[in-house]
Nucleic acid binder design. Structure first.
Length: 468
RNA sequence: GGCGGCGUAGCCAAGUGGUAAGGCAUGGGACUGCAAAUCCCUGACCCCCGGUUCGAAUCCGGGCGCCGCCUCCA
């Protein structure tokens, strides 16, 4: 048994994690729909998955991590009506759907790298798995779970008795108006499209032939088809945002369990809560989204955002404000300084000296990925006067395998000299002025450099400078 | 209307029965020619009212407030 305990949406309890296949954890994460920039809120889902990944590896498990990229079929409305998000974005920009998908996929991948998310084992695109999706739909059809209407092939949710179970749905009690825009002919409000026909007279950029006619796959199908392809079934963990519980994941489960005759199809379901951006909700459709690049433009280190993420538990809503972001950036910078300070510390740490702290850190990680608690331990270690430098070095480097804050690799922000001859000369000149107690001249040079964004730090060992 | 979550110091937040982690900010101090950086010290009647209990931020009931999903979104 591992020591890792995770909150499982399926059972609504914390459960001890044990992989189905000994020594190997198989994880699927719902990835982005690449029709628009991925904003800070989106990033939280992947940061959470990254934490899971690191925690599993810390338990000594090999992890196969599959992340999908939705580049077709996700409609503006989840009620199977409205336009395809990619097609809509393409029409609005005059570019092709694939160009748009490529652009935002690249932006997303770059942002993941910048916040130190580990590379997934497989990134898979919906458009590259059309055959698998059709095969899955055909299986469902052969088993009698589908019906055909003018609009497409639909999954009949009434044929799956456990449909409401996962999300604790009260299908009868849901607001009548919620599904008003429904497709004519759907038998039940919750029924969903497996395959959508291309609208008559409309030439879509993305459409394929199928046994039922030309069209495109329903959004939910890709996750069932691709996870099965790359992970087999059943598998261990499926992650995503809380918004997916009621519709997307519920439908994935219905498709997969019916097609594969498996229950439960996935052992653990992890869902991250949303960030609260205060007041007007940040969303793609409102056009007020904040992306990682915006933070970089404001002078933030991308990893300061990871630090912000770590300060809250993934299952709680967290308030994002620029003030909180500044606080996180300062905290991150100081933790880096502390790590840098002890990085070259010689000698070995005494095992019993570090055992208690290691244990506290691991307990936090193992308790449903409690990053804020783990981070607190890291700070206590970093600032502990009782611990030797070698012990602090060893612990912080070990902790960073989970935190991912670059404690081991961040470059020194402070250079004693050698970085820039002109600046070194000016610093030396100021030091000379100070020696002769010509503080007016010394301050003039300091102000000059400050104007270039260079700060001088006077230390017992002499002056040094840094940028920023 | 249905489902779910939250309300802990100025801010971001851990903590789910035994008298409140951590980060940021504030104030004080050390250091400095003065600063900066760093370090030390500094702060909570845990939304309100009842109840259970020897004991509750933590459990139960009732309020008030905020948020999310079902309806673009992680």
């Amino acid at each position: 048994m591992t020591e890792l305990v995770l909150y499982n949406t399926r059972t609504r309890t914390k459960e001890r994690f044990e992989p189905i296949e000994p020594g190997h954890a198989r994880v699927y994460s719902c990835g982005p729909t690449v029709y628009a920039p991925q904003h800070l809120g989106n990033l939280r889902a992947y940061l959470m998955a990254d934490l899971l990944r690191r925690a599993l590896e810390a338990e000594g498990l090999r992890v196969t991590h599959v992340v999908n990229i939705t580049d077709v079929g996700h409609l503006v409305s989840d009620a199977d009506t409205g336009e395809d998000k990619l097609e809509k974005a393409a029409a609005a920009s005059g570019r092709s759907a694939s160009e748009i998908a490529d652009e935002y996929t690249e932006q997303w991948r770059r942002d993941l790298r910048r916040v130190n998310c580990l590379e997934a084992t497989v990134y898979c695109k919906a458009t590259e798995h059309i055959a698998e999706q059709i095969a899955l739909a055909r299986t469902l059809e052969a088993k009698g779970y589908t019906y055909r209407i003018d609009d497409g092939i639909y999954f009949d949710t009434s044929k799956f008795p456990r449909y409401a179970e996962f999300a604790h749905l009260d299908l009868g009690g849901q607001e009548a108006g919620a599904r008003i825009g429904d497709v004519p002919g759907k038998r039940h409000g919750a029924d969903f499209a497996l395959w959508k026909f291309a609208p008559p007279g409309v030439k879509r950029q993305q459409e394929w032939d199928s046994p039922w006619g030309r069209g495109f796959p329903g959004w939910h199908l890709e996750c069932s088809a691709m996870s099965t392809k790359y992970l087999g079934a059943p598998f261990d963990v499926h992650t995503g945002g809380v918004d997916h519980v009621a519709v997307h994941h519920t439908n994935e489960i219905a498709q997969s369990e019916c097609a594969l005759d498996i229950h439960p199809w996935v052992r653990f379901w992890l869902h991250n809560e949303f960030y609260d951006f205060g007041g007007e909700k940040m969303s793609k459709s409102k056009g007020n989204l904040l992306v990682l690049e915006d933070l970089v433009d404001r002078g933030f280190d991308p990893l300061a955002f990871r630090f912000f993420f770590l300060q809250g538990h993934y299952r709680q809503q967290q308030s994002f404000t620029l003030e909180a972001m500044e606080a996180a950036a300062t905290g991150h910078r100081r933790l880096l300084s502390a790590a840098l300070e002890v990085r070259g510390a010689p000698g070995e740490a005494a095992p019993d000296e570090i055992a208690v702290h290691r244990e506290r850190f691991c307990q936090a990680v193992r308790d449903d990925l409690n990053a804020p608690r783990a981070l607190a331990v890291a700070f206590e270690v970093a600032r502990s006067a009782d611990l030797g430098r070698a012990a602090r070095r060893a612990l912080l480097l070990e902790f960073d395998r989970f935190l991912g804050l670059d404690l081991a690799t961040a470059l020194p922000r402070v250079a004693a000299s050698g970085g820039d001859p002109r600046i070194d000369a000016l610093v030396a000149e100021r030091e000379a002025a100070r020696k002769r107690r010509d503080f007016a001249d010394a301050d003039r040079i300091r102000d000059l450099l400050a104007g270039e964004g260079i700060a001088i730090e006077d230390t017992p060992a002499g002056p040094r400078w840094r940028r920023g």
